[in-house]
């Protein structure tokens, strides 16, 4: 009874107090309302402060995420563009893929490899069999060892993978001042920001680095690149390639096409995945709704059942319950 009244007083003091102090008040009031009260309060306040303080210390020491670079050095955050092919119900625009591959082949391929894409993957997505075959045959590949153990050269086949511009990574480094041009097969998945980042990077080269920016020799300034110094120079200029379908080859058009192509090379299964996905969602939601209905139907008799137990009345004895009533 006393405790309850203490609680009431504590509540009356206001909601700003912590429950710890509220407890303290209650405890205090259960004892004589005198000397012990402030000691309890002090102890609890001190221990609360200690707990909060140690948590804070621990968070500041170990809990915060660690940044190796300052936000400026991380690079400018890429703008979010409304990519049509990233929508839930949209496939890649395959005409854009075809243009994008043309840009890759004529521009990017001189430095960047695309090792994970075989020629056959182009068939049925952006090229006819004959076009892809003709492209594959322009390249030479090693044969398997012949009778004498010699390795010869043969023209490429559809089952071959798109060749790299360099024999190996070391050759790539040597040709580019030590900076290896990354393989582009999975680049949209491998870079934070994906399509947006690559588009921003390709189109984000300023005419001149801004005043005060330090650009090392051999590097180029790009605000979107982490560290802002990128070995790749601006490559896309208006009219650099000539599209066969007559699309004006502006810088941003080329960048958009090649980004979509690179997104395809990272996720060639996207079209099929989306199509399958929404079918599964459609069937699945209908199935879920029906399962709810069937469950309610099957359980309705059980849920609406009333079990009643009337204990037999022993002869000569009154039911205690009845007697109580």
């Amino acid at each position: 009874m006393l405790a309850r009244s203490g609680l009431r007083t504590a509540r009356a003091f206001g909601s700003a107090r912590t429950s710890a102090t509220r407890n303290a008040t209650r405890n205090a009031s259960t004892q004589s309302e005198g000397a012990a009260s402030w000691k309890n309060t002090a102890t609890l306040s001190a221990s609360t402060a200690l707990a909060i303080g140690s948590c804070t210390f621990y968070y500041f020491q170990f809990g915060r995420s660690v940044h190796a670079m300052t936000p400026a050095e991380e690079g400018l955050h890429a703008t979010a563009y409304p990519w049509e092919h990233e929508k839930f119900f949209k496939t890649f625009d395959h005409a854009a893929l075809r243009r994008g591959f043309q840009v890759y082949r004529e521009v990017c391929a001189s430095c960047h490899s695309l090792q994970r894409i075989p020629w056959r993957a182009l068939v049925g997505t952006m090229m006819t069999v004959d076009e892809a075959k003709a492209l594959a045959e322009e390249n030479e590949y090693d044969t398997e060892p012949n009778d004498e153990g010699e390795i010869e050269k043969r023209p490429g086949k559809l089952s071959d993978y798109i060749p790299s511009p360099y024999k190996n990574d070391e050759a790539g480094r040597a040709a580019n001042n030590g900076a290896l041009p990354p393989d582009l097969s999975l680049i949209t998945k491998a870079r934070h920001g994906g399509c947006n980042y690559i588009f921003s990077l390709l189109t984000g080269y300023p005419e001149e680095p801004p005043a005060g920016a330090v650009v090392q020799s051999g590097l180029n300034f790009n605000p979107y690149f982490p560290g802002t110094g990128i070995a790749m120079a601006r490559v896309l200029y208006d009219g650099l390639v000539e599209y066969e379908d007559g699309t004006p080859a502006t810088t941003s058009q080329m960048a958009k096409d090649v980004v979509e192509f690179l997104n395809w090379s990272a996720e060639p299964e996207m079209d099929e995945r989306k199509r399958m996905g929404w079918k599964v969602m459609a069937i699945g939601s209908v199935l879920f709704a029906m399962s709810v209905w069937v469950k309610r139907y099957k359980w309705s008799t059980i849920k609406t059942r009333h079990l009643q137990y009337n204990p037999p009345v022993a002869p000569g004895k009154m039911n205690p319950r009845q007697s109580r009533r």
């Binding site: 119900f89 496939t91 005409a95 952006m126 006819t128 199509r275």
Partner: peptide, 27 residues
């Protein structure tokens, strides 16, 4: 029925985007 219907719907949403829609040009 569902496969036929949903594929038709899919193709109509993505009309002009898929390879089969632009294939004829190159063929």
């Amino acid at each position: 029925a569902f496969d036929t219907g949903s594929n038709a719907l899919w193709d109509s949403i993505n009309r002009g985007r898929q390879w089969k829609d632009i294939k004829h040009r190159y063929m």
